[in-house]
Design a protein around this nucleic acid. Structure first.
Lengths: 138, 138
DNA sequence: AGCCTACATTGGACATTGTCCAAGTCAAGA
DNA sequence: TCTTGACTTGGACAATGTCCAATGTAGGCT
């Protein structure tokens, strides 16, 4: 993530304090914050950053392919900075924790031609659901 | 779906006109309506049915395992009456059309033990995305 | 270094989707 | 047919996301 800002500037992005802070908040492994969580963490560093700016910046990062949008629960979308290595998600059905996982094989290959209804299929996402170790005992 | 109401009555469900109408709206193949779409169609048959009743009924059908909740786009949840045969979804990235599909193999088997982080995994859902034949030319 | 200006940010109104609750209604057993 | 507890209603509220006019500023130009 450290060179993300450089890459974006090369693509014509203006480097503002707000965008820098949003990018910093998203830095890390297994990060899957909602827009409001990003906003809360960004506010710690830049108190007056607007909610709309966080939404705008996240949408731009998604459009540029630098961040993935994940909706595992039909509630708020989550933002995953690990867009450069394809992966899938493992979600705890109790607490909502999300981990990035790497299944073997290609799920696309599992869909027979006669089940494709003439679609030009671009990708497949897999969501595993279960109970995480922290929640098992409760 | 025709005997759904019988099954539910056997489980102690009160058979009201509203619930009957919601069940009728959900009858069919490749049906994936949002709650508001269900409400609109239900209103055609029973003009004064309340939105809250539709939400209640859909939640109950999901809790009873008779209907699946699908969130493919992070917007409104969709309701899939085909809960009795496991299947996955193929979504058009332009128009949002959804088809039920049946990939071969078990996606669970593709997740290695060292990628499970101690979770007790219960299931895996796969979403295929692509452009449908209707949208290909546009 | 200072100016310009197109692009970015702000804050608040608005939209969409979903939840909750108190009051009224009704399905179905006795 | 009566009764009662479950169901429905309508509207207020909550959570998440979008839009826009006014204001601010990054970065190129001189």
């Amino acid at each position: 993530m450290s060179d993300l800002l450089e890459r974006l500037r090369d693509r014509g992005w203006r480097l503002t304090a707000q965008r820098r802070v949003v990018a910093e908040v998203l830095d890390g492994d297994h990060v899957h914050y909602t827009a409001d969580e990003v906003h809360a963490r960004a506010t710690d560093r830049l108190p007056e950053i607007a909610r709309a700016t966080v939404y705008n910046t996240l949408s731009e990062l998604v459009a540029l392919g630098e961040v993935l949008e994940v909706s595992t629960d039909g509630r708020a979308k989550r933002y995953d900075p690990n867009a450069r290595h394809t992966h899938q998600h493992l979600v705890c059905s109790r607490c909502g924790t999300i981990r990035d996982v790497h299944p073997t094989g290609d799920p696309l290959a599992a869909l027979p031609e006669n089940e494709r209804y003439g679609f030009a299929i671009a990708d497949a996402t897999v969501t595993y659901r279960g109970v995480c170790p922290n929640c098992t005992g409760s």
